[in-house]
Nucleic acid binder design. Structure first.
Lengths: 212, 212
DNA sequence: TTCGAAGCGGAGCGAATCGCTCCGCTAGTT
DNA sequence: AACTAGCGGAGCGATTCGCTCCGCTTCGAA
């Protein structure tokens, strides 16, 4: 019925998702034991797949970057510049890009990661430029602002807290409130009737991304 | 020159600020030793003022709630409904209200805390109502959305990370980028030309506040 | 049906860190 | 000059960490 290969694949997927969840709830303090327990997998099985804790987190980072790029390309494929940008932001936020923030500084950045990060920056730039040219995005919003926005909205300390406390009854309401907040913020990025004079989009030193 | 009382007062202030900083950087994992070290104070001195770690965090929560209420009252004192609400949000965000999120579920909520939290909710409701009546706030934005917004923007994982890594050179740029993001988001709360049909402000079960 | 081994879960290792206590010593006060 | 309030930090037992190792299960070939 369940071949060994299929079981291993399912376990690996469960481990990665569990790592995301535990990281979101416990931050940098997330322990390997907690991740394995959440995934319903023994610690031994985890360590057969990933030699160290860092290797697991590196894999997680790489998948996160790939997801960023996938969603960005999907957004660019959309004919509507605004819809493309909005779906990109929403896709990144809901995936929980921000959950990796606590470990971003503790793991070694592989060459593959930095390559994908550069590609992702480029895709985002193109999304922004297209929206600007179509006149559907506030002129004072630069790529770094979108990066920051995704990082800021990508985590939900309140929802993580509720889940940790086991208040599953409040989770749907909180999740829905968060979704509304995201749409409100996204809506605020569109050019309004009274745009405030913003600073120029420059500032090259800080790109707003975790990995270099 | 420096009397004992003045030194003690200065130490207490340094401890509270250090606790905020370390909590922001380390989350729930923040240790008492780290807080004392950041404040430049011995652990013994910390424990002379606060019997336990929880007592320190409770004090911190209380001060945070008081700050919330102070800023809300200042906002209500402003004749301009929009400026009042905006300065309230900005004041809460910059104070770092969200830093306490990781410990909010771990400490016991005192009666004094819940009283101040209730008062704060009421003040926020009045700020929102006033803005709605003046027509300077999107009609689909409720109090719970502002609470969520403050929690979401109140933490800056990226800035905390930079500070932790000692990249003080990038800090000004990151801080300025974050300030721009806040103004952009705030600006998006004003009624736009094409308001989307939002859900009703109701949903009573979840108020979006940490303490009950 | 039998049996070798691939792959599983988890007990347990040493090391690190936790919250907290206790005490020698500095420095302000009388 | 004598006193002592208040400081900093070494160190306690307990806990938790990342990780190893091994007995047992269970799949698949003979």
């Amino acid at each position: 019925m369940t071949t060994r290969k299929a079981l291993a694949e399912r376990n690996d997927h469960a481990l990665l998702q569990a790592a995301r969840d535990v990281l979101a709830e416990d931050g940098a303090h997330a322990s390997v034991a907690a991740i394995a327990a959440r995934a319903g997998v023994g610690i031994g099985s985890l360590y057969r797949r990933y030699k160290t804790k860092e290797e697991l987190f590196q894999r997680l980072s790489l998948l996160s970057l790939e997801h960023w790029n996938d969603v960005a390309e999907q957004g660019l494929a959309s004919p509507d510049p605004w819809a493309g940008l909005a779906s990109f932001v929403q896709g990144c936020v809901e995936f929980g890009q921000g959950s990796l923030a606590p470990v971003a500084g503790t793991i070694e950045v592989t060459q593959e990661m930095s390559v994908k990060a550069r590609l992702g920056d480029e895709l985002l730039e193109r999304l922004i430029r297209r929206a600007h040219e179509a006149g559907v995005l506030r002129t004072d919003v630069a790529a770094v602002d979108i990066s920051l926005l995704i990082e800021q909205l990508g985590r939900s300390p309140m929802i993580d807290q509720l889940r940790k406390q086991g208040r599953d009854d409040l989770l749907p309401a909180a999740t829905e409130a968060r979704r509304r907040l995201i749409t409100i913020v996204l809506d605020g990025l569109r050019p309004g009737p009274v745009p405030l004079p913003g600073s120029p989009p420059g500032e090259e030193l800080f790109t707003g991304r975790w990995s270099h």
